[in-house]
Design a protein around this nucleic acid. Structure first.
Length: 361
DNA sequence: GAGGCGTGGGT
DNA sequence: TACCCAAGCCT
C-alpha cells in the first residue's frame, strides 16, 4: 500500500466517535462514578489514585475486591496515612508487586504531611511521589482533575501502535507512541477525564492483544493496521528470553502447641515487608540460617514469578517451644490462624500443600 | 535503560 | 505445557 493511501486524520471526529462509544459502553467499575451522578459529583482523587496504583500491571478483575476492601478499611487518604503498615501489607497480600504497597503507604503519608492531604495538581509534583510515574501522574491529572494529559498505558500503547501502524518494536517505539498519542488527546477539553478511560475500555474489550474485535470498534475507520495490515501484529515486541529456574528450601517448623514459625521478610527485596516462612536464600538476598532439626522432606511446590520460576522443597521439623530460639523478625502463629496472616501466594501454596498432608495423616 | 518486581487467567 | 498478558515504577 502506498503512503498516499494513509488515512486522513480528524482529531475532533476521532474524539467524538470514542466518546459516543463510551457513553453507551463504559464499564461499570467500583472506582468510577455511577453514570447518573457523574456530572454532578466530582471524582474522588483518593479513589482515583488508589485504583491506579492497584491497577498497575494487574487485571481489573483482580483489583475490584481489593479496592472495595481498602476503601472500606481506610475511607480517606488521612485514614490510610495513619494506618498500621503491617495491616496494609497484610490486606495487599495476594495482589502482587508488593513495592506498590510499600510506596502506597509512603505516598499517603507524604500527601498528608506535605500537601495537607490533597493530591498536588501538577505533573512535576505528582512524579515526585512514591509509586507515581509517568502514566499514573497523567491518569490522576486527567481522571481526577480534568486536565488534558497524554495518558498512555499498555492499552493505549497498543491502540496507538495499531492506529498509526508503528512498525518499530517496543520499547524503542515509546517516544513515537507518545507523540502520536498527544495528537489523540489534543484539545480534548471537558472530556479530559473520560477520554483515557474510554480508550482503556476499548483496549480491554475490543482492541485486545489477540483477536481484536475490529467489527465493534468505533474508530476502525482511522486504523491503519486494520486497513493495511493485521492489527494483532501490533505493537511489535522483541522476543523474550527464557525464564531461569531457581531452587530453595522452605521450613515448616511446628511446636508441640501446633504453632508455626512465621517471619516478616526484609524490605526492598522479593516479597519485601511481607509475611513468609523461614527458608534458604532463593532471591539473592542475604543468607538464612538453617535450624538444626530432625528434618522430614514433605514435598515440593513450584511457583512462577515474572522473571524466574522457583521450586521450593518443603522441609518439616518439630521442635519443643522451650527449645525454640526465634530471630528478631520471627514469631509463632497458631496453625489454625495461618489464613489470617496475609501471606503472598508463594507461601499460601506451601501452607496449602502441608494442609493436604495433614488430611491424609 | 534494561532488568527486578507477583499473580491469576487465557490460549 | 509453556507461553503471553494485565490501568508501570524504580534503580
Amino acid at each position: 500500500m502506498k503512503k498516499s493511501h494513509v488515512i486522513e486524520w480528524d482529531t475532533k471526529d476521532f474524539q467524538q466517535k470514542v466518546m459516543d462509544w463510551y457513553g453507551k459502553n463504559a464499564r461499570d467499575l467500583p472506582w468510577r462514578m455511577p453514570r447518573e451522578t457523574k456530572k454532578a459529583v466530582k471524582p474522588n482523587p483518593y479513589h482515583v489514585w488508589l485504583s491506579e496504583i492497584m491497577l498497575q500491571q494487574t487485571t481489573v478483575l483482580a483489583v475490584k475486591s481489593y479496592f472495595e476492601k481498602f476503601t472500606h478499611l481506610w475511607p480517606t487518604l488521612a485514614d490510610l496515612a495513619h494506618a498500621d503498615e503491617d495491616a496494609v501489607m497484610r490486606e495487599w497480600a495476594g495482589l502482587g508487586y508488593y513495592a506498590r504497597a510499600r510506596n502506597l503507604i509512603k505516598c499517603a503519608r507524604e500527601v498528608f504531611n506535605h500537601y495537607d492531604g490533597a493530591f498536588p495538581r501538577t505533573e512535576k509534583e505528582l512524579l515526585k511521589l512514591p509509586g507515581i510515574g509517568r502514566y499514573t501522574a497523567a491518569a490522576i491529572l486527567s481522571i481526577a482533575f480534568h486536565q488534558e494529559s497524554v495518558v498512555v498505558d499498555g492499552n493505549i500503547e497498543r491502540i496507538t501502535s495499531r492506529l498509526f501502524m508503528i512498525g518499530e518494536p517496543l520499547p524503542q517505539s515509546k517516544k513515537t507512541i507518545y507523540q502520536q498519542a498527544s495528537i489523540i488527546y489534543d484539545g480534548i477539553g471537558c472530556s479530559a477525564s473520560d477520554m483515557p478511560q474510554a480508550l482503556m475500555d476499548i483496549g480491554a474489550t475490543i482492541c485486545t492483544p489477540k483477536s481484536p474485535k475490529c467489527s465493534l470498534c468505533p474508530v476502525c475507520s482511522y486504523c491503519q493496521a486494520f486497513h493495511f495490515s493485521e492489527p494483532e501484529k501490533y505493537p511489535h515486541k522483541a522476543s523474550k528470553l527464557k525464564k531461569p529456574s531457581r531452587v530453595g528450601e522452605v521450613y515448616w517448623i511446628e511446636t508441640e502447641n501446633q504453632q508455626i514459625v512465621v517471619e516478616k521478610r526484609g524490605g526492598n527485596r522479593m516479597l519485601g515487608n511481607m509475611a513468609g516462612l523461614p527458608g534458604t536464600n532463593w532471591d539473592g538476598y542475604g543468607q538464612e540460617k538453617i535450624p538444626d532439626l530432625d528434618w522430614q522432606r514433605a514435598g515440593e511446590i513450584t511457583h512462577v514469578f515474572t522473571h524466574f520460576s522457583l521450586k521450593l522443597t518443603i522441609m518439616k521439623g518439630k521442635i519443643r517451644s522451650s527449645m525454640l530460639i526465634l530471630n528478631k523478625n520471627q514469631y509463632l502463629v497458631d496453625i489454625n490462624n495461618l489464613g489470617d496472616v496475609g501471606f503472598p501466594s508463594l507461601f499460601r501454596k506451601v501452607i496449602h500443600f502441608v494442609s493436604t498432608l495433614k488430611e491424609v495423616e
